[in-house]
């Protein structure tokens, strides 16, 4: 199967547009009760309303981004202490009679802290991107208003006449579009 037909299979279905947050939440709750009929559905929101994030937490579980942050931060601490210690080992610089190496650890807390923050932040961004499936050059933009003021629920593989479409309309969809 070609890439194009694979993509079109993923994007073929119906897109229900909602004006209101509570309508969208109501539709999401109904979908979760009939999950077998809505396989692969996606919800779109112009911003991160907590009502939707709470439902996402139930659907996807706690975000795994936290593990990226933890691993990044711990690596930062390790590198932050290892770097000056190894450089001290390579060539100790004794300034003002102060011994280099393990005896100067208090001064190296700065590097441990800074690199913890730096690598923790970089790893967090990496986690946000990987878990959010971006960058995605093939991202399909179903409707331009979904990043503006409209909510959307996309259900793949069904049409306007389906039971799924009726359920989405019952929850106040302002428009129902068949996507190619």
């Amino acid at each position: 199967m070609s890439d194009h037909s694979q993509t079109s299979q993923k994007t073929k279905g119906i897109l229900a547009l909602y004006k209101y947050l509570d309508d969208t939440c109501g539709a999401m709750d109904s979908i979760e009760k009939n999950l077998s009929e809505f396989k692969g559905y996606q919800v779109y929101s112009p911003t991160s309303y907590h009502e939707l994030i709470d439902r996402a937490e139930v659907k996807y579980g706690p975000s795994q981004v936290r593990w990226f942050t933890l691993v990044g931060a711990l690596s930062g601490i390790a590198i932050g202490f290892a770097m000056p210690l190894l450089m001290d080992y390579d060539w100790p610089i004794v300034v003002g009679g102060k011994t280099a190496g393990i005896y100067s650890l208090p001064a190296y807390v700065i590097f441990g802290f800074e690199l913890m923050v730096l690598l923790g932040a970089i790893a967090t961004i990496a986690g946000m991107l990987i878990m959010g499936r971006i960058p995605n050059p093939h991202a399909h933009i179903f409707h331009d208003k979904l990043t503006d003021d409209t909510f959307g629920i996309f259900v793949p593989g069904v049409n306007k006449e389906s039971r799924q479409a009726k359920l989405l309309q019952e929850h106040g969809a302002i428009d129902l579009i068949e996507t190619a």
Partner: peptide, 28 residues
Amino acid sequence: SFGWVGTVRQWHHYEAGYGFLAALATPL
């Protein structure tokens, strides 16, 4: 925008990451 489309899944991880970034930036 890295192909951001605003799925709830994206927002879910975005919000979590934003919170961790804020927590890291605060002591900074």
